[in-house]
Design a protein around this nucleic acid. Structure first.
Lengths: 192, 192
DNA sequence: ATAAACTGTTGATATATATCAACGAGGAGA
DNA sequence: TCTCCTCGTTGATATATATCAACAGTTTAT
């Protein structure tokens, strides 16, 4: 169950955890199963956990005043999910996070994570790299969103997240790209 | 000249630097003056410096295949400017950074910054908070860009960056919002 | 002082995308 | 097995924004 997380830590840092470190990591995380459509977080709550996805697919979205969902993040195995601003600043989140497929997660609180920083140096290194890469990816998406056409954003998406195509329906991907499912359908027809 | 930076550090961390720490910080930064339109960074280069703006206004933008500029970042006094992905990963930047007004900057290399982390704890704390707030702001902008209309994005901008209105021309702000200057002009007319 | 460049606005038109409605196919649940 | 739900596509239409051109005022440079 924690194997995936240990592998992830090794892949990110090049560091193999000792037995002691593995025990510390194991006890710091809480296992949680979610059924499809079940919430991990709802808008207005404070994000108490960050979650590593062992198995399944998750999505993070906001709902506008017309009730339309706008997907900010999609995530599958070996990804992390959570509203980092709410998690660090203890502010109510504008996002909802729920399971797109039945999912198995490992959750950690901010306090437990800070404890691990001291006890397992690989964790603090991994977290820093993960945060940086996330930040870079968000900035690239922002750049794409203000300068590219919808079609070009879709091409970009195919390059950077080909695996998402099989895990999420077209209308979810369209929302993630900031377009409607009809527009995505027409783009796909043109592209083939 | 460095007063602004010391004040910034204090404001972000609540920590007052000692004389020794001030000397360390002063010697780690390089002063640089740029004339209006002068580049700090050009696309394809590696971003060797991050810059604190003591005086002036800077902009960070990419140029698409049609030669159109897309502004990703505007910055004035007490802001930082640089391509953080290129700075940390030593990859060529897709961005240009130049001075919109004659500007005075304090530049620091990655190596000097890492030295300061050890020697002046307030610097590492400030940098972490700055990076986090930047990351949060980028995510909020992404959320706004995929879910809001152009008009709503402008309203948002007025709330979060009222001081930019007097420092940057409308066509620059339009580009930063991902719309054309004509569209922004029409939105402003409607809003008044 | 003058010319050139920059800036913002406006009107007309074009285009990209949204919206609405409907349909067919496939999957899920009872 | 059947019904309901989900999904993706398509056509028609509407809307938000882009594009183009032109103009007037302001600022900058010579």
């Amino acid at each position: 169950m924690h194997e995936a997380l240990f592998n992830y830590i090794f892949r990110y840092t090049g560091l193999q955890l000792s037995e002691t470190e593995m025990e510390l990591v194991t006890s710091a995380f809480t296992f949680k199963k979610l059924r499809k459509k079940q919430y991990l977080l709802q808008e207005g709550e404070i994000c108490k956990y960050f979650a590593f996805i062992v198995q399944g697919a998750m999505r993070q979205y906001s709902v506008d005043e017309k009730g339309v969902e706008h997907i900010l993040q999609l995530a599958i195995e070996n990804w992390w999910i959570g509203d980092r601003e709410s998690y660090l600043m203890l502010t109510p989140t504008p996002y909802n996070i729920d399971a797109w497929e039945d999912s198995e997660l490992l959750l950690i609180t901010r306090a437990d994570l800070l404890n691990l920083f001291d006890q397992v140096p690989a964790i603090s290194q991994m977290t820093r790299q993960m945060d940086d890469k996330n930040s870079f990816a968000t900035q690239r998406r922002l750049k794409a969103t203000i300068s590219y056409s919808a079609e070009k954003r879709y091409q970009d998406f195919l390059t950077t997240h080909p695996d998402f195509l099989q895990r999420f329906p077209q209308h979810q991907i369209a929302s993630y790209l900031g377009i409607t499912k009809e527009t995505l359908s027409r783009i796909r027809k043109q592209t083939i």
